[in-house]
Write a protein that binds this DNA or RNA. Structure first.
Length: 427
RNA sequence: GGAGAGGUGGCAGAGUGGUUGAAUGCGGCGGUCUCGAAAGCCGUUUUACGUCUCGUACGUAACGGGGGUUCGAAUCCCUCCCUCUCCGCCA
């Protein structure tokens, strides 16, 4: 959520930066509501001041045994006016808040301008693509022949987009999760958390998925709870409504959760295989930091994610999303894309965002500055580190052998306990 | 699911209608004392909104949420939510 005061005092700048996303019209009429709200507060507050004054006079009179019906009459009349004003104010507050909740974050100055993914900027690239002196299989064919996943049975028990991993495939997938978590822990900067996979509305408003994107979420209607689309939601909301101490910052968490996404509106696009799923596993990193450090922390976050890819020797590139492609809550975002050598294209495997104070304001997460003693909103960041399905695609394609077997990447061997998957088993 | 109890400041815990934003204790911060420290002592210690004369200014609001009674509500009434205890069921 943007700060209404900031919008009021920097209207032109806010309009310009929102127009980078093509949504400057969201500001129309907003300041009129704000103006009306402040005028109303001024009026009701002075009425309340008068009522407090009268109450005091009545109390004093009563102590002397005097009755003051004329004071009571005036106070009663004011009370009616206050009730009406408060009711109107509540309506205006709601209207203003609803408006503010649907305005996306302002793109940071370093974000490339542009409207679509074509305008994203590649920041850097790492690694070399594997080459094959044989005819490589695509990942689906390979996975099928190795018998490590079973999409039809996933469809049987739930529907399309719900994968079943089997045998060595299930072990490999679990190995990835443990590998991610262990590396984060061994580097010593993240506290691992295990959090609920189901969250309430407040949590989703805090991180920005609600009220705008309810259609993308699975809802447990009976309890009005949602399956999480990412661990970002429960982990960021760990500190909702808190005032943290400056000494606590930065707070870094990582955690594994499955992620549930309805992917409404994307039917027909990559509905087969691992590329677009309704459920997938992901390890997420979340940071709560002092505002002046958030862009440094953002770079660190990206490095923590790419470190995993380097350990797996996967060719990747870091892409800075342009303003038009930026997620709703993000001020800046790097996507990590990995190269699928058979598919011959880049696959997004991580998204690392700096939300600045946008989520913190929505979720009311503050910290107390030790120098001034004042409270201020923290900056929040998060990034996948990493999501498993698309990484599995690239690993399958990259580490396949000419005899139709699959070599476990060296970094994962201690997690799988075997180093080769063959159609007939593991070795 | 059944029965009961309770939700007050960072924590503990008073407060049943009139300067109670809220006693007291703990914790925190500052000072005093000391070579230094502890103890003791003294002081201090919420947040949000609004206004302007932009100030350690003034006003308003907040004792789980919402509503009601009243001139006036932490205090009375209704309602919702949550927590705890016991029972049942289950992992």
């Amino acid at each position: 959520m943007l700060d209404i005061k900031y919008i009021r005092e920097n209207t032109d700048e806010v309009r310009r930066r929102l127009s980078m996303r093509g949504v400057a019209d969201l500001l129309d009429g907003l300041l009129d509501i704000d103006k009306e709200r402040r005028a109303l507060i001024e009026r009701t507050d002075s009425l309340k001041a008068r009522r407090n004054e009268l109450s005091k006079l009545i109390a004093d009179s009563a102590k002397r045994g005097e009755q003051k019906p004329e004071l009571k009459d005036e106070s009663r009349a004011i009370g009616d006016e206050i009730s009406a004003g408060d009711e109107k104010l509540r309506e205006i507050d709601d209207a203003l808040r609803q408006r503010l909740l649907t305005i996306p974050n302002l793109p940071h100055e370093s974000v490339p301008s542009g409207r679509t993914a074509d305008d994203n900027v590649v920041v850097r690239e790492w690694g070399t693509a594997p080459t094959f002196d044989f005819e490589p299989m695509d990942h689906l064919k390979l996975a099928e022949s190795l018998g490590i996943c079973d999409f039809p049975r996933g469809t049987l028990i739930t529907g399309s987009g719900f994968p079943v991993y089997k045998g060595a495939g299930a072990i490999l997938e679990r190995a990835l999760i443990n590998f991610f978590l262990d590396v984060h822990r061994e580097r010593g900067t993240y506290t691992e958390v295990s959090v609920p996979f189901v969250v309430n509305r407040e949590s989703l408003i805090g991180t920005g998925q609600l009220p705008k994107f309810e259609e993308d979420l699975y809802l447990c209607d009976k309890d009005d709870l949602f399956l999480i689309p990412t661990a970002e939601v429960p982990i960021t909301n760990l500190h909702r409504g808190e005032i943290l101490s400056e000494n606590d910052l930065p707070l870094n968490y990582c955690g594994y959760t499955p992620c549930f996404r309805r992917e409404a509106g994307s039917y027909g696009k990559e509905t087969r295989g691992f590329l677009r799923l309704h459920q997938f596993d992901k390890v997420e990193m979340v940071k709560f930091v002092r505002p002046e450090t958030s862009y440094d922390e953002h770079e660190k976050l990206v490095n923590d994610a790419t470190h995993l890819l380097e350990l797996l020797n996967v060719k990747y590139r870091v892409v800075s999303l342009c303003a038009g492609d930026l997620g709703f809550s993000a001020a800046k975002c790097y996507d990590l894309e990995i190269w699928a050598p058979v598919e011959k294209r880049w696959l997004e495997v991580s998204s690392c965002s700096n939300f600045e104070s946008y989520q913190a304001r929505r979720a009311n997460i503050r910290y107390r500055r030790s120098d001034t003693g004042k409270t201020e909103f923290v900056h929040t960041l998060n990034g996948s580190g990493l999501a498993t399905p698309r990484l599995l695609v690239v690993l399958l394609e990259s580490y396949q052998n000419d005899d139709g077997t699959f070599s476990i990447p060296p970094a994962l061997k201690k997690y799988t306990g075997f180093s080769l998957i063959t159609p007939s088993g593991v070795a």
